[in-house]
């Protein structure tokens, strides 16, 4: 633990722009390769102001999406800002059915992603904090013996940047970085809640198949992650599979009986399945659990709708399950 923490601390010190910035070799974790270069990473020389589309196309291509930067420009570029915003690079990634996985703010995670073969999109501030010049580039490797970061950047296919300089520009850019994952792929060192939240973004963007595959992978790796089950239920619901939705919600409730959102969604799935009595019971429970939270309004609305539903002539389609208290 300490062996791992010390290099991380050294790297952090370097990134903070201390006078005694350590070279890359001093901060590299013992198990990390001395050098990596993902030389097969495609390159798209950027046109003026188009580093966002160029960098994003590089990542998407590397994760198997056939795309040109020109096709991404209308999806991310903002003429009035002469650039592209971070949130929109994330959004555009979702539109191409890839999972934008935000990395932690330590260089360790950049290196772990490179070691798994994924280029990393980074935001750099090439000037001072108070007079910023924002730039997106793609980190494709590093060489600890020569103390350089390797980038696809702007019009340079292979830019070698002194590690401390790279670390400084990344630090002033807010240490923001992400990789694009194919649905179902989870980084070796992934953080469960960060990964599931990334999948929730795919769900929000309506990419249901990609979200379903990613939730399934998350459930296989972290079966105790309640939000992965909730998300799986939501995707099943959106795809019209009510029994699968109800079963996933049940698993989520077993893990966290007090989650108002899951109760609310279970109540909705029950109502749609003609199980009105149980639906009302779960809706009431959801309202009590949501009290005082941001969900209170939405959950109350669900209950009102369920209470207004007339008794169904059809039988409950979700028999044979044990509903939680």
């Amino acid at each position: 633990m300490i062996r791992r923490a010390l290099p991380a601390a050294a790297l952090l010190a370097g990134l903070a722009g201390c006078a005694a910035s350590p070279p890359l070799a001093d901060g590299l974790a013992p198990q990390a390769p001395r050098s990596i270069e993902l030389s097969a990473t495609p390159f798209f020389p950027q046109e003026e102001y188009q580093c966002g589309p160029a960098a994003l196309a590089t990542l998407l291509r590397a994760s198997g999406v056939e795309i040109e930067p020109q096709a991404l420009t209308p999806q991310v570029f903002i003429p009035g800002r002469l650039g592209s915003l971070q949130a929109e690079l994330i959004g555009a990634t979702r539109r191409h059915e890839r999972l934008p996985y935000l990395l932690a703010t330590t260089a360790d995670e950049l290196i772990e992603e490179l070691a798994e073969g994924r280029p990393v999109l980074v935001l750099q501030n090439l000037r001072a904090s108070r007079w910023p010049k924002w730039h997106y580039a793609v980190l494709i490797g590093y060489d600890a013996t020569r103390n350089v970061a390797l980038l696809r950047s702007g019009t340079e296919e292979r830019l070698e940047m002194r590690w401390q300089r790279f670390a400084g520009t990344w630090h002033r850019g807010g240490r923001w970085a992400f990789t694009t994952l194919e649905p179902g792929v989870i980084p070796l060192h992934a953080d469960a809640s960060r990964y599931v939240l990334a999948v929730a973004g795919l769900e929000a963007a309506g990419k249901l198949r990609a979200a379903a595959i990613s939730y399934d992978a998350a459930i296989a790796r972290w079966p105790e992650q309640q939000h992965a089950w909730l998300g799986r239920g939501n995707v099943a619901y959106a795809e019209g599979d009510l029994p699968a939705a109800a079963d996933a919600y049940l698993r989520a409730i077993l893990l966290e009986p007090k989650d108002a959102a899951t109760r609310n969604n279970l109540a909705q799935a029950l109502a749609d399945s003609h199980c009105l009595a149980e639906s009302r019971r779960q809706a009431e429970r959801a309202v009590a659990l949501a009290e005082g939270t941001a969900l209170a309004g939405a959950v109350a609305e669900t209950q009102v709708k369920i209470l207004a539903m007339p008794p169904s002539a059809e039988a409950c389609q979700l028999e044979g399950r044990i509903w939680p208290d």
Binding site: L197, A260, L295, K305
Partner: peptide
């Protein structure tokens, strides 16, 4: 730092929203 909430089907709370509510 991360995106949350989802406009889902009527009556369904999106996962991102649920996470946000838990984290206050």
């Amino acid at each position: 730092s991360l995106g949350l909430q989802a406009p889902a089907a009527a009556g369904i709370v999106g996962t991102a929203d649920a996470v946000a509510a838990v984290q206050q």
